[in-house]
């Protein structure tokens, strides 16, 4: 049987992709950011997940204003990196796991979640930066990836309650898949950042830290936070952090934090990163 064994959360700041691609991760400026992922890189090399279900928001790359699904899942064989305006990142194509993805589609929709099915799309920094942070620059990504996209660009994003419930539904779906697979669920985006208006640059370390502290045991409480609070306290784009609750829901009641990293700033953003294992 397939099993959700662990998960991570991480910010997915696009600049980090450029720092990896141009080999600047060990510079004085950037090593404090990347050193917080050394634990994760060693850990994941031992964990060897077969599949990562990677939750992220598309940043006007695969979806434009014509079509904005609230929750979508990538069922394709592979996904090329998107050209976000300066050429595609020099990273390998992301290889999907269509069998498990379609299994999740059926299971999760039958659990009353109306996922949008995507059979062809490019993936942007939201998905490729977390892979780079955990795997560096391999010729091929060492695991299959099932993209799960969440709309956080057009208001409203789905609620924390809905994200947590989707995570729980994903766990059930994975556990009912017959093949023996080691599956991780990653929640990405966040933490504090606002990229618009006179209030741009807002960072709320206190709020972010409280969120990190409550994530292990008090996630049901975190799921009650409305989007307006994420925006008010952590910035318009800080509301991406709600996606972490999908990861948390997927890891079940007994998940445990084994690593934490928080760094201000990366460009406009407070970077947060957690590694969790679960029963």
């Amino acid at each position: 049987m397939a099993k959700v064994t662990a998960g991570i959360t991480t910010s997915h700041v696009p600049l980090l992709g450029r720092i990896v691609d141009t080999k600047q991760t060990q510079t004085e400026e950037w090593s404090p950011v990347f050193s917080g992922y050394e634990f994760t890189k060693k850990w994941i090399a031992e964990e060897k997940p077969d599949v990562v279900i990677l939750v992220y928001n598309d940043h006007a790359s695969a979806f434009d204003m014509k079509l904005i699904p609230t929750f979508a899942i990538g069922c394709a064989e592979e996904f090329p990196p998107a050209d976000e305006g300066f050429g595609a990142r020099p990273v390998p194509n992301v290889i999907g796991h269509p069998d498990l993805a379609w299994h999740i589609v059926q299971s999760v929709i039958e659990q009353d979640f109306d996922l949008t099915i995507v059979n062809e799309m490019a993936v942007d920094h939201g998905l490729t930066v977390p892979l780079s942070m955990c795997f560096g620059q391999p010729d091929a990504w060492p695991c299959k990836v099932i993209p799960v996209m969440v709309n956080t660009v057009v208001y409203p994003a789905p609620s924390g309650r809905r994200c947590l419930a989707l995570g729980k539904a994903l766990r059930k779906a994975v556990e009912s898949f017959d093949e023996n697979l080691n599956v991780q669920v990653w929640g990405t985006g966040g933490m504090s950042h606002q990229l618009i208006g006179e209030r741009a640059g807002i960072i709320n370390r206190e709020w972010d830290t409280r969120f990190l502290d409550k994530f292990e045991k008090d996630y049901e409480e975190l799921a009650q936070i409305p989007q307006s609070e994420y925006i008010r306290e952590t910035g318009t784009e800080g509301s991406e952090t709600v996606m972490w609750l999908i990861m948390r829901g997927a890891l079940g009641e007994n998940a445990r934090e084994i690593h934490r990293h928080y760094h201000i700033p990366v460009s406009n953003t407070a970077l947060g990163h957690l590694v969790y294992t679960c029963d």
Partner: peptide
């Protein structure tokens, strides 16, 4: 930003 960003 390097000094911790804009306070809320």
């Amino acid at each position: 930003m390097k000094q911790g960003g804009r306070s809320p």
